[in-house]
């Protein structure tokens, strides 16, 4: 029951982070702009516009944000039947990974309308999450946290508890690490202290979660407290801050990464535990009993997870 409450909070927090950037989108003439194909940008407008102006190719200039001097060649501009959407057709395929800047002249009587087209940022954030959860699952494709993985994946209940505790600690410590990294380590050129600072923050988080849990919710503490000790000496948890430092993630990206990594760890633990409950019934050759067979099963999982490789959601 308690775990459900906790999960609900996590979901709410995640929703907040997902919705907040959405609400920040500006309103105006342009309602929506997306890459609708390899050579296409579709722009949805809030009102009908003059067909003649909208379909004149010369009224548009489009370039990649990083290369404002290279104007992309437009093939055609088509206004939809309801006069409320314009489709820009380009001569060459676009690099949809980059942000494109579109400037339209005279559209709806406005002298100059400039807007950016990029792959949805939400999609990008979600992509980070999915990547950490499945495509680059920390256990099966990055091989982190194996000691705990093999140690606590014998029973489903243990696996669930461990996974949840991990996710929580991971998110909290990752956010703290991000803060330290961006506001203390980088400005003062102290990046070489990364390892010490991050491991210190992880220990601190574990200690804090321990104390808070003990006071606030002793029942939860009794069921999850035992796992907290195991958290510190685990590479999966220290890996998240190191990765975010490497990739210069912002706070949303960091949150998504930590959530995905934790979720992925939970998923891996849960899968492995359900499998190993079945494995305990099997007649395993004596020399393979215990860890060797667990490794081989994990290897099979890793092979199955190869199916996610190359997955590009957005």
């Amino acid at each position: 029951m308690m775990m459900l409450v906790k999960i609900r909070y996590i979901v709410l927090a995640a929703l907040f982070f997902v919705v907040a950037p959405l609400a920040a989108q500006a309103e105006g003439l342009i309602v929506d702009q997306t890459f609708s194909g390899k050579k296409e940008i579709t722009v949805k407008l809030s009102g009908a516009v003059d067909r003649k102006v909208a379909e004149n190719v010369g009224n548009y200039t489009v370039f990649e944000e990083a290369d404002p001097d290279i104007i992309l060649a437009l093939g055609s501009a088509t206004l939809g039947h309801d006069s409320k959407s314009v489709t820009l057709q380009f001569k060459a395929p676009l690099n949809t990974a980059k942000t494109h800047v579109v400037t339209a002249q005279g559209l709806a009587g406005i002298d100059k309308t400039t807007f950016k087209v990029s792959k949805s940022y939400l999609g990008y954030l979600f992509g980070i999450f999915i990547s950490a959860l499945l495509i680059n699952n920390f256990v099966f494709t990055k091989y982190l946290g194996l000691c705990v993985f093999f140690g606590t994946s014998k029973k489903k209940s243990t696996a669930k508890g461990m996974g949840v505790v991990f996710t929580v600690v991971m998110v909290v410590s990752a956010l703290m690490s991000w803060f330290f990294f961006n506001f203390i380590l980088t400005p003062f050129n102290l990046n070489f202290l990364q390892i010490v600072v991050f491991i210190g923050l992880v220990s601190l988080t574990v200690q804090a979660v321990d104390t808070v849990l003990r006071k606030v919710n002793p029942i939860l503490f009794n069921s999850f407290g035992v796992y907290l000790v195991l958290v510190i000496a685990n590479c999966v948890i220290i890996a998240v801050p190191l990765i975010l430092a490497n990739n210069n993630y912002n706070i949303f990206e960091t949150f998504m990464l930590a959530l995905g990594a934790g979720g992925g760890f939970l998923l891996a633990l849960y899968l492995m535990s359900s499998v190993s409950e079945r494995l305990q019934l099997a007649k395993i050759p004596p020399t393979f009993k215990g860890l060797p067979i667990a490794f081989i099963v994990a290897g099979q999982f890793a092979m199955a997870f190869l199916g996610f490789s190359g997955l590009q959601l957005f």
Partner: peptide
């Protein structure tokens, strides 16, 4: 290695293909 027929978790043929 996993105990013979009935104890494998993955379809052996597909595992072979993935390999």
């Amino acid at each position: 290695l996993l105990g013979g027929i009935g104890y494998n978790f993955f379809n052996p043929a597909l595992l072979g293909r993935a390999f």
